[in-house]
Design a binder for these strands. Structure first.
Lengths: 116, 116
DNA sequence: CACGTATTTTAGTTTGATCTAAATTACGTC
DNA sequence: GACGTAATTTAGATCAAACTAAAATACGTG
């Protein structure tokens, strides 16, 4: 129960990933598919942070890597997150939250036309 | 129990303030005195964030403003923070954490010499 | 081992969080 | 009301988190 854990769940993006992993194990690719607004690389980096905090673990499975949430590491926070997520309004809130809290460069538009 | 709460405790600086307020009520000035590495303004801004998340409340007392932590708002997180803080290693950890996580401009040196 | 798919890592960019300094507001006392 | 102290707010600066694109790595298969 250390500061890295609390910092890790402080990010909406990382909570989104935890949410996806809550009920099922998923490959990195599957997680990315569920988050179309970021690149695969970004997802991988956040998974690394989560793993560093001990909140997820992964195992290789053929050419895939399967991620799994470590609920026990979350302790009492697990219940808190669940409560948050079962809240009927959550889906609406999540959208707003992600929109207002995203950082880093905007998704670049496909530069159409110029062919190089 | 919403996202603002989790985000609020995600910041080491704000956790430091919560720690100071944990056992006693304090004025904004007293909190600032206990945090000599930031300006009064910075402390005030963080108190505002904490208040916005419902984690602290304040009442005027003469020309002062007394702040108080709202433990109930923290729910299960309260116990987690306490555990973190009673950890014997905590003091060492805190220093390292603050050093590595501070943001914003460096403290400016007194511009000595040139009298403007 | 060349090739295709899955994932991670690196290098560089953007932006919001956090900060400072200064201006402003709030309160009490004379 | 003028003055002094306490606190907040504003405007501007800096930094690191979070991102992208591309390169590198890992794994399985023909």
């Amino acid at each position: 129960m250390d500061a890295a854990l609390i910092s890790a769940i402080g990010s909406p993006r990382r909570r989104e990933i935890l949410r996806l992993l809550w009920e099922q194990e998923l490959t990195a690719g599957a997680i990315h598919q569920a988050m179309p607004d970021v690149t695969f690389g970004a997802v991988s980096l956040q998974l690394k942070v989560l793993a560093g905090a001990g909140l997820v673990e992964s195992r290789p499975d053929a050419q895939f890597r399967v991620y799994k949430v470590r609920r026990d590491a979350l302790g009492p926070v697990a219940a808190m997150l669940e409560e948050m997520w079962t809240d009927a309004l959550w889906h609406l809130k999540l959208k707003a939250e992600l929109k207002e809290s995203r950082r880093g460069p905007r998704p670049r538009r496909q530069s159409k036309g110029k062919k190089r």
